[in-house]
């Protein structure tokens, strides 16, 4: 427990009469990949939104490396070192791939605000190098000058991942990173995420695809109706009858 990096403590959130999260506790360990699974409406996305400051919980707190995240704004949470990949890729569709990746690199260097209106972007060699490097790493370098909006869905997701990775975040939150991807693209993403894991980045991943979950996760938390019903290693969760009942309708995985 001593190397817990993200701690979700007693988080409660209700929308009107609907309890989206009921006193959820979660400990994410350093350098581990932690998957959160559960049926639709289990509160997975709400939990992620609480972590990045998009939703304020009614109760409870989220701390990252000893720092309280609850009540912080999204940009402040990013500056602490938490990056997020969205379910539908949030990119800058009208800008080129290079610009898409340079912007987060600038955020990392300049902080949340810097008035550098008299520097010339062309001369920012360190930023350009970093951006090129990450595009090469994610196999997007050939399209560096294309508009991001023209990419295929899978490429957009990879671009968004590149935008997060260029910041070298300490914690990466991924919301269904392979949803809507072909099997080929999914496997490519799994390989990529495995490579990132080797660099010691902590990841929280929400995923429906069990193939992805069992390929990547060190630990799994199962949510159902806003409550944690099981937590453990993939093997433990796989064998848990309660999980099979709630999540898989009794079917075997």
């Amino acid at each position: 427990m001593n190397d817990t990096v993200l701690k979700v403590a007693d988080v409660h959130k209700s929308f009107g009469g609907l309890h989206a999260l009921r006193d959820v506790n979660l400990d994410i360990e350093q350098s581990k990949t932690h998957a959160i699974i559960g049926p639709n409406g289990a509160g997975k996305s709400t939990l992620l939104n609480v972590c990045v400051g998009r939703i304020e919980p009614d109760n409870g707190s989220v701390t990252f490396d000893g720092e309280t995240l609850t009540g912080k704004k999204p940009h402040e949470i990013n500056q602490v070192g938490v990056a997020r990949v969205f379910q539908t890729p949030e990119i800058f569709p009208e800008l080129t791939l290079m610009q898409n990746v340079m912007i987060p690199a600038l955020a990392k260097r300049d902080g949340s605000f810097k008035f550098n209106a008299f520097r010339i972007l062309q001369g920012e060699n360190d930023i350009r190098d970093e951006a090129e490097h990450i595009l090469e790493d994610l196999d997007l370098i050939d399209q560096r000058d294309s508009e991001a909006g023209s990419l295929s869905r899978g490429d957009k997701r990879r671009l968004e991942l590149a935008m997060c990775l260029v910041q070298h975040p300490r914690l990466l939150l991924l919301d269904e990173p392979t949803a809507g991807m072909s099997r080929h693209d999914t496997n490519r993403t799994i390989d990529l995420l495995k490579r990132i894991k080797e660099r010691g980045m902590t990841k929280v991943i929400i995923e429906h695809d069990m193939h992805v979950v069992f390929s990547l996760a060190d630990r799994i938390t199962v949510l159902a109706q806003g409550t944690v019903i099981a937590e453990g290693t993939p093997d433990e969760v796989r064998g848990n009858p309660q999980v099979q009942e709630a999540y898989l309708g009794g079917a075997h995985i």
Binding site: V52, K73, P74, H75, N78, Q79, A83, R84, F86, E90, I91, F92, P93, E94, L95, Q99, M102, I103, P104, L106, A107, K108, D110, G111, S112, F113, K114, F115, N116, A117, F118, R119, I120, L121, E124, I127, M163, Q167
Partner: peptide, 23 residues
């Protein structure tokens, strides 16, 4: 300038700008 690029990015996707760490 980098400042100008950031302004363009705000036009393009303000949500991403916030989650990218910009105020």
């Amino acid at each position: 300038s980098p400042f100008g690029l950031k302004l363009l990015a705000i036009k393009s996707n303000q949500v991403r700008m916030n989650y990218t760490g910009f105020n």
